[in-house]
Design a protein around this nucleic acid. Structure first.
Lengths: 196, 196
DNA sequence: ATTTCAAGCGGACTGAGGTCCGTTTCTATT
DNA sequence: AATAGAAACGGACCTCAGTCCGCTTGAAAT
């Protein structure tokens, strides 16, 4: 019988009860975040809200940070889709510079909106994981199209660093700047890099 | 009698036992960090090592992050001194561009060396506190001297962001880049900004 | 339908950060 | 030297992330 036949290295597929619990946990977590904020999501409370044991929560998500990363992942997927195949200027079709500036703006907004969640996700996602890797790649790609010469890997990393949730949040909430101004400054920076 | 006389708003001076305990705690903490790393510094262990109660630790430093911030503060003071009145090119006397590049290099090294400590200090210091404020101010000042036009506050923040401990650490430990390369890339960025 | 057993489950338990409050100690004043 | 009261102290106590292990269950094979 043509069973899914476990391909080399593929995890052997999730059991149905496991899948059900994972969904229940994610749903409950989203509800709790929406209702009472990120801090209200304790692992015990989440387990109870989802009607499972605490051990199950950790089995599914490893840690609190892992859970938060899973929540952030939804937005991340959408955003990557928008960049890869959404409408211009964020998506393909617009001139590279327009796309780069749109990416910066869009990322600032995303990072500001979900700053708390991303903070709670910690290293699991904020730094060093697939998300950052994707942005760096894309930025590098656009810089290349714009004819920028130099160490594009390091340059791209440097250009996205100011978009980090903590940096944006600091500027908005402590220094009282608005996103327009921050984006203008960043656009200025990008402009100088491209025309340097 | 010429008592210190409490100047308006000055905190009323620390009691002698409090000062003694603060020193004992900081010493013990430094020893523990050196001996077994940042993670080994638990509040209970620290209290016992310093021979005080746990409540005292929290009275002095508010939180674990606050304690770590106090430890980082030592290095921070030294660094700020070096920038303000140390030998060139980091200190005054060298051309602004030399100073700026030296600042970047020096800060990268500092942030990489104490990445764990700074991470543990969290928002207390990594973002939004006096330390960042000082660097931003200084960067802005140098950019001004270099004749850079534009929103210097935002521009300075953007230029400093890639020096953040997490960013440097990520590049060195996960991407395998060395500090020379990272600094070259950053210098390139700065050069483009100044000559843009 | 029955068997088998890996995967999943739950909740008691541990360890660490942070709080509280009754007790002790410093210091200013008389 | 005695006194008063504010500041500091200490450690029991609370919450919450994370672990462990004996029990249960889903699904593949007979």
């Amino acid at each position: 019988m043509p069973v899914p036949l476990p391909l080399l290295g593929e995890p052997p597929r999730e059991r149905s009860d496991a899948a059900r619990n994972r969904e229940a946990l994610l749903c409950a977590a989203r509800r709790m975040v929406e209702a009472d904020g990120v801090d209200a999501v304790t692992m015990d409370a989440l387990a109870e809200a989802a009607g499972v044991g605490k051990g199950t929560v950790f089995r599914r998500f490893e840690s609190r940070a892992g859970l938060m990363a899973a929540l952030v992942n939804d937005f991340e997927i959408d955003w990557q889709q928008a960049v890869l195949s959404g409408p211009p200027p964020l998506g393909p079709g617009a001139p590279p510079m327009d796309r780069l500036l749109a990416m910066g703006r869009s990322r600032m907004e995303l990072n500001l909106t979900h700053a708390q969640l991303m903070e709670a996700a910690g290293w699991q996602l904020t730094q060093g994981s697939a998300a950052d890797s994707f942005i760096a790649m894309h930025t590098r790609h656009l810089l290349g199209q714009l004819g920028v010469r130099g160490d594009l890997q390091v340059l791209a990393t440097a250009l996205i660093a100011p978009l980090a949730p903590a940096v944006i949040q600091q500027q908005v909430e402590a220094e009282g700047l608005d996103l327009d101004r921050i984006h203008s400054g960043w656009a200025d920076l990008v402009g100088r890099v491209v025309n340097g």
